[in-house]
Simulated assay, not measured.
Amino acid sequence: MTMQIKIDGLDKFKRQLNEAGRAFKSLDGEIAKVNIVPGDPISVQAAIRQMEAAIDRKASSYRGNPLVENIVKQLKERYRAEIARRGRG
């Protein structure tokens, strides 16, 4: 006797994984070039906004995918911290 079990949501999860893979490829490598003037908080904030906007543009096709949204959040935090560190001069 063969028993088949259907797992609800598996197709949705596979689609999310495929989308996440494409999003990760688009976010790999250079995202944007930003200019920072060390010691100038206005230039640091502008650079952070530019970087976050660039990340959002690259990931915009995958909005609503929780896997992508999680990595986007992490990338923004990482770049925000790095830009702030470099901006301290």
Rank of each mutant, 00 (worst) to 15 (best):
M1F: 11
M1R: 10
M1V: 13
T2D: 08
M3P: 01
M3A: 04
Q4N: 11
I5C: 00
K6A: 01
I7Y: 02
I7G: 07
D8Y: 14
G9V: 05
G9C: 08
G9H: 06
L10Q: 13
L10G: 05
D11T: 11
D11R: 12
D11C: 00
K12W: 10
R15T: 15
R15W: 09
Q16S: 08
L17M: 12
N18L: 13
E19H: 04
E19V: 07
R22V: 13
R22I: 07
R22Q: 13
R22F: 09
R22Y: 07
F24Y: 12
S26Y: 02
S26V: 14
L27A: 04
L27D: 01
D28V: 10
D28K: 12
G29M: 05
G29L: 12
E30V: 10
I31E: 01
A32P: 10
K33I: 09
K33V: 08
V34W: 08
N35W: 04
N35G: 05
N35Q: 13
V37G: 00
P38S: 07
G39W: 02
G39N: 04
G39I: 15
G39Y: 02
G39F: 11
D40V: 14
D40E: 09
P41T: 11
I42L: 12
I42W: 07
S43A: 05
S43I: 09
S43V: 09
V44W: 02
Q45M: 07
A46W: 07
A47G: 05
I48K: 14
I48H: 06
R49W: 11
R49K: 15
Q50R: 10
E52C: 03
A53D: 15
D56G: 02
D56F: 01
D56L: 04
R57M: 09
R57E: 15
R57N: 13
K58A: 04
K58C: 05
K58G: 06
S60F: 11
S60D: 14
S60C: 04
S61V: 01
Y62V: 10
Y62C: 02
Y62L: 03
Y62D: 09
Y62I: 10
R63D: 12
R63L: 12
R63T: 13
R63E: 09
G64H: 10
N65T: 11
P66S: 11
P66T: 08
P66D: 14
P66N: 06
L67P: 08
L67F: 14
V68D: 00
V68F: 00
N70I: 03
N70M: 14
I71T: 08
V72N: 00
K73P: 00
K73N: 09
Q74G: 06
E77K: 13
R78G: 01
R78P: 01
R78W: 00
Y79C: 02
Y79L: 03
R80G: 01
R80K: 08
E82D: 12
I83L: 15
I83T: 13
I83G: 06
A84Q: 11
A84V: 03
R85E: 07
R85K: 15
R86S: 06
R86I: 05
R86G: 06
G87N: 06
G87W: 06
G87K: 07
G89E: 15
